[in-house]
Design a protein around this nucleic acid. Structure first.
Lengths: 204, 204
DNA sequence: GCCAAAAACTAATAAGCGTTAGTTTTGTGG
DNA sequence: CCACAAAACTAACGCTTATTAGTTTTTGGC
């Protein structure tokens, strides 16, 4: 009969802070940020709630870290992509596949970032929305250029961006049901669907 | 200086219950179900929180009504559509346009239904998910039939359904930004994007 | 094996939540 | 104009929440 728990960092891999962040992402995703309590989070790693505060500053800080960690990876990727000399269509395909892959690779964090950003505390919410707007504008520019070069059909670029960014969130639903569909098949079919909808099949 | 508020139903249109339901949908959408308190909901119609309980049973009941009201309209529509003798492509286009239109017409309720269904109380959550599964299966059947008749490209039908159902939720973002894009333009461009991605352009 | 530091614990607090009880005011039909 | 139902009010309850304070245990380097 133990009366006291041993340190959490010796169990799993990574620092205590990383373990807590990872568990938090999982719980925030499955129950929602507001419905998940610090007691539940603590229980998931077999400690008491106040012990969490030896490692983290607050519950809100966990959400901030998740949202901006995801946003940073998105920004880093599109900034690298902008520098490449690639046909517009390939840039768009690259973006679609990147979004699908990151939704699989960082399932919990991307889900939380997509669903719980409204709960970000005060200065962070505005900053998050600002970053989002910048990202969308970069995508709009890529689409606009591809239209000018007649690589894809004329379409309102912002609508194409909305459609793509929303569509890839279908991966969230796939994560829960799968139905025998592999990640590769999902990525290929969804990419084809979204890309073919843009391509100018009548030639130049 | 008034000490007592007059009845709410004499101000706006509709019964008190309808006014509360409408305000609740708006608040649940903009702040999230859990972050919106009964005191805020009451304040939005200039009464005190306990007065709400003369008209409604509970906060959860408001959410249940919103979610199932939306789900019912979806089910009614697809059941009518199934009875029609139409080419598969036209059924799919009908579905896409219906989804976009209802997201505009019943903005708050559809948003809440999409984002807050996890907060449904116990027997309703399972029922909601069950209805969702049935609806998705009906869409899968429509896509599958269209593939068999070579109206659209061979694609994993479930992935096409995921892509479409997620993509139309981009309308949520459009609601917040618009950027000078009319509802009609939004509907047409998004529908074309999603439909062209499926169409078998090489003929039968 | 000791000793600081890290990290667990227990106890408690203040705030906020949905909701109930009991009372008073308001509005309406006879 | 009065009585009765509808609907507002005030007060409060019981519960949960994130977080703090203070204490004890564990751990790792010497």
């Amino acid at each position: 009969m133990w009366k006291r728990m041993s340190k959490i960092s010796v169990n799993g891999k990574g620092s205590s802070k990383e373990i807590i962040a990872s568990k938090a992402a999982m719980l925030f995703r499955s129950r929602g940020y507001n419905s998940c309590t610090m007691r539940q989070l603590a229980e998931s790693m077999d400690i008491e709630a106040p012990s969490l505060y030896n490692h983290i500053g607050s519950k809100a800080e966990l959400l901030v870290n998740i949202c901006f960690s995801v946003a940073d990876e998105f920004n880093r990727h599109i900034e690298e992509l902008e520098l490449l000399k690639l046909p517009g269509i390939e840039k768009i395909e690259n973006l679609i596949r990147f979004h699908i892959r990151i939704m699989i690779r960082r399932h919990n964090e991307v889900y939380v970032s997509n669903h719980e950003w409204k709960q970000l505390p005060d200065p962070y919410l505005a900053q998050f929305l600002q970053q989002r707007r910048v990202y969308e504008n970069k995508m709009v520019q890529i689409i606009r250029t591809a239209i000018r070069k007649k690589e894809i059909k004329p379409i309102e670029p912002y609508i194409a961006v909305l459609t793509i960014l929303s569509a890839v969130r279908g991966v969230e639903t796939w994560q829960r049901h799968k139905k025998g569909i592999t990640p590769g098949k999902l990525e290929d079919d969804m990419t084809q669907h979204l890309l073919n909808g843009l391509i100018n099949s009548h030639g130049h």
